[in-house]
Measured scan of single mutants.
Amino acid sequence: MSIQHFRVALIPFFAAFCLPVFAHPETLVKVKDAEDQLGARVGYIELDLNSGKILESFRPEERFPMMSTFKVLLCGAVLSRVDAGQEQLGRRIHYSQNDLVEYSPVTEKHLTDGMTVRELCSAAITMSDNTAANLLLTTIGGPKELTAFLHNMGDHVTRLDRWEPELNEAIPNDERDTTMPAAMATTLRKLLTGELLTLASRQQLIDWMEADKVAGPLLRSALPAGWFIADKSGAGERGSRGIIAALGPDGKPSRIVVIYTTGSQATMDERNRQIAEIGASLIKHW
């Protein structure tokens, strides 16, 4: 067993022997301040990774656009098919120029040779490549099948209805392509620590998230040296922004954090800054 596999296998073990965790309302004060600064709703939840206990939450059962955070769930569904012998990570998928959609920095470079399922998941999570996500959605049967996968996990809230990039439209009061912070946090925890996926697939999923290259201005910008984070960000229309993450000190994750916002007129930089400040408060009061 590799060191990384050992780390993920012992996530519940280490967490069980940690000192009790206590909620700190100071972080919620910052979440509410972010709402004021952005002029928009902000949803927040913080779960203990081992027990699933909610440590703090704000608007945990209000719907927010998922945006690209759905790509972690998508690759979880792909990995479940791999575990069941219905898919192979090494299978190569070929596609054409007509398949390319807006923001496809990886797939646009491989029109000639195609990409493997493993490479597509890596591109979808680490670079948020939209064509990679659409190609992977095709392998599982489309958005409705991802929703069905989530329902089978016990998540009857999260739903995907459309493809990239239309799913980022974020129309107010439109339930399409949305989740709730509580539902997303619980589902992410199941994917990373539950028995739904094999140990190898859980490790692969967290490795992809740990290698995320496009979430630097968010929670990662607030992390002290030595902290662990595996995350996936999302951005959408109407001032929408979000991030889902597993993080913790001492090089291992111990909490799940989900943050979503929508309806702001603020710039992307300002949305990023507010999420980073929430992260800084979380870490300060850990």
Results as ranks from 00 to 15, higher is better:
residue 278 I to K: 00
residue 269 D to M: 11
residue 171 I to E: 15
residue 118 R to N: 15
residue 270 E to G: 08
residue 59 R to S: 05
residue 132 A to V: 00
residue 44 Y to A: 02
residue 230 A to D: 00
residue 258 V to I: 13
residue 240 S to N: 07
residue 28 L to K: 09
residue 239 G to Q: 02
residue 65 P to C: 04
residue 285 H to D: 07
residue 193 T to H: 14
residue 137 L to Y: 09
residue 215 A to F: 03
residue 238 R to C: 14
residue 158 T to K: 00
residue 52 G to H: 06
residue 265 Q to S: 15
residue 166 E to Q: 14
residue 155 D to Q: 02
residue 168 N to F: 03
residue 162 R to K: 07
residue 163 W to P: 09
residue 3 I to Y: 14
residue 65 P to M: 02
residue 101 V to D: 14
residue 21 V to S: 10
residue 179 T to M: 01
residue 137 L to K: 01
residue 86 Q to I: 12
residue 226 G to E: 10
residue 167 L to K: 02
residue 257 V to K: 00
residue 166 E to R: 11
residue 80 S to I: 10
residue 135 L to H: 04
residue 33 D to Y: 14
residue 256 I to Q: 01
residue 201 S to C: 07
residue 156 H to T: 13
residue 243 I to N: 02
residue 170 A to R: 08
residue 50 N to S: 13
residue 252 K to H: 13
residue 55 L to Y: 11
residue 17 F to R: 05
residue 211 A to D: 15
residue 223 L to M: 11
residue 141 G to T: 05
residue 278 I to R: 00
residue 88 Q to I: 11
residue 236 G to S: 07
residue 40 A to D: 05
residue 91 R to V: 05
residue 69 T to L: 02
residue 192 L to W: 08
residue 85 G to D: 10
residue 43 G to V: 00
residue 236 G to A: 10
residue 141 G to V: 04
residue 169 E to S: 15
residue 122 S to A: 14
residue 254 S to W: 09
residue 103 Y to A: 06
residue 33 D to G: 13
residue 138 T to P: 06
residue 210 E to G: 09
residue 223 L to G: 03
residue 212 D to A: 04
residue 54 I to R: 10
residue 107 T to F: 02
residue 286 W to M: 07
residue 284 K to R: 13
residue 229 I to T: 02
residue 145 E to R: 14
residue 145 E to H: 09
residue 107 T to D: 01
residue 171 I to N: 15
residue 252 K to C: 12
residue 98 N to H: 14
residue 229 I to V: 10
residue 125 I to K: 00
residue 188 L to G: 04
residue 255 R to D: 00
residue 65 P to H: 04
residue 142 G to Q: 04
residue 134 N to Q: 05
residue 238 R to Q: 12
residue 52 G to A: 07
residue 42 V to D: 00
residue 108 E to H: 10
residue 117 V to E: 02
residue 167 L to V: 14
residue 101 V to E: 10
residue 142 G to L: 01
residue 127 M to C: 09
residue 124 A to L: 03
residue 41 R to H: 15
residue 235 A to V: 05
residue 254 S to A: 15
residue 104 S to D: 02
residue 79 L to N: 02
residue 197 L to Q: 05
residue 274 Q to K: 12
residue 231 D to L: 04
residue 210 E to N: 10
residue 130 N to Q: 04
residue 138 T to C: 13
residue 217 P to M: 14
residue 2 S to I: 15
residue 41 R to G: 05
residue 28 L to P: 05
residue 249 P to S: 08
residue 11 I to G: 08
residue 133 A to H: 01
residue 114 G to C: 04
residue 213 K to L: 13
residue 73 L to F: 08
residue 228 F to D: 03
residue 250 D to L: 12
residue 74 L to V: 11
residue 19 L to I: 15
residue 271 R to D: 06
residue 146 L to G: 03
residue 233 S to G: 09
residue 171 I to H: 15
residue 35 E to I: 03
